[in-house]
C-alpha cells in the first residue's frame, strides 16, 4: 500500500508504538546508566500510550463504532500522569543512590542478590 495516498489506521500507530516499546526495552536491557534505564521506561510507556490513543481514535478504524472513544484518551492521560510521578520517584531514588555510592551504574546495585 502506498502510505502517501492511503489512509493510515490503528495498526500503523501500533507499529510506531511497537518500535518505541522495543527500543525502550532494549534501552533498559543494555544501558548501565540508571537514568538511561529511566529513559527506556519512558519510551516503553509512550509506546504503550500510543496504542491507547490509537485505539481510542475513531478516524483510524474501519468501523468507528468499535473505537474506544474518549476512554482511550483518558487512559493515556492517566498513564502520562503516572509516568510523571514514576519519573519523579525514580529520579529521587537515583539521586539517593548516587549520594550513597557516587555512581549511577545499576550493575553495582546488585546487593539484593541472594
Amino acid at each position: 500500500m502506498n502510505l502517501l495516498t492511503d489512509p493510515v489506521g490503528a495498526s500503523h500507530f501500533m507499529a510506531v508504538g511497537a518500535v518505541m516499546f522495543v527500543c525502550g526495552v532494549v534501552c533498559m536491557a543494555t544501558k548501565r546508566n540508571g537514568l538511561g534505564i529511566l529513559m527506556g521506561i519512558e519510551l516503553v510507556i509512550n509506546g504503550a500510550n500510543l496504542n491507547f490513543v490509537a485505539f481510542g481514535s475513531e478516524f483510524l478504524r474501519r468501523n468507528p463504532d468499535y473505537a474506544l472513544g474518549v476512554d482511550g484518551q483518558l487512559i493515556a492521560l492517566f498513564v502520562i500522569v503516572l509516568a510523571a510521578a514514576e519519573a519523579a520517584v525514580a529520579l529521587a531514588i537515583a539521586l539517593n543512590y548516587y549520594n550513597n555510592r557516587a555512581t549511577i551504574d545499576v550493575d553495582r546495585a546488585d546487593e539484593l542478590k541472594g
Binding site: 536491557a29 546495585a109 546488585d110
Partner: peptide
Amino acid sequence: TGKLRQYV
C-alpha cells in the same frame, strides 16, 4: 543475580 538489566 540482582542485575536489573538481566531482569528486563
